[in-house]
């Protein structure tokens, strides 16, 4: 099937099988390896990408659903070499350890801030319900999101 999508600002035309998962198309066809496969069951968020601004689990999402959509992956977060405030805040706060959850965390946070520019701690915890991190203990991730929200406003 034909698939036309804009990923991180550049347009792609692909021919994919209906059963291709978005995660595999991004990783294998477009070589965007930032989104990771972990739980493979929509629980952990490592595979999170934004489709028209909405977070989805690319591990359980047909690529053809993204036809005509604009996608954001972690590779598109920074503007050239200028980091997104979230990336900066994650670095500074020590919210990154092994990094396997990081791209999903960043994109989830990006979607949250798009909906809610001044989230409370509770708002963040609620939004992160499907975003697991086995390294950090979460405190620094929450702190980084709050910092990024403040610097973005």
């Amino acid at each position: 099937m034909n698939l036309t999508m804009v990923v991180n600002g550049s347009s792609h035309e692909l021919d994919v099988a209906p059963h291709s998962l978005l995660l595999d198309v991004l990783r294998d066809s477009l070589d965007l390896k930032g989104a990771k496969r972990s739980c493979d069951t929509q629980v952990c968020g490592a595979c999170t990408v934004l489709v028209d601004g909405q977070a989805v689990s690319a591990c359980t999402y047909l690529a053809v659903e993204a036809d005509g959509c604009s996608l954001l992956t972690v590779e598109g977060l920074a503007d050239g070499e200028a980091l997104d405030p979230l990336q900066r805040a994650f670095l500074d706060a020590g919210a990154v350890q092994c990094g396997f959850c990081t791209s999903g965390m960043l994109l989830t946070a990006r979607a949250l801030l798009r909906e809610n520019a001044a989230p409370s701690r509770e708002d963040i915890l609620h939004y992160l319900r499907g975003s697991l991190c086995r390294c950090t203990g979460y405190r620094k991730i929450v702190e980084a999101i709050m910092t990024a929200a403040r610097t973005t406003r």
């Binding site: 990783r27 972690v74 590779e75 977060l77 994650f90 500074d92 990081t102």
Partner: peptide, 21 residues
């Protein structure tokens, strides 16, 4: 000193490569 991690930039930009990549 609490310096940010040296591999942090690679990780927040999604450029860090793991075995599965």
């Amino acid at each position: 000193r609490p310096v940010p991690r040296v591999d942090g930039l690679e990780k927040v930009t999604g450029r860090a490569r793991y075995v599965t990549d």
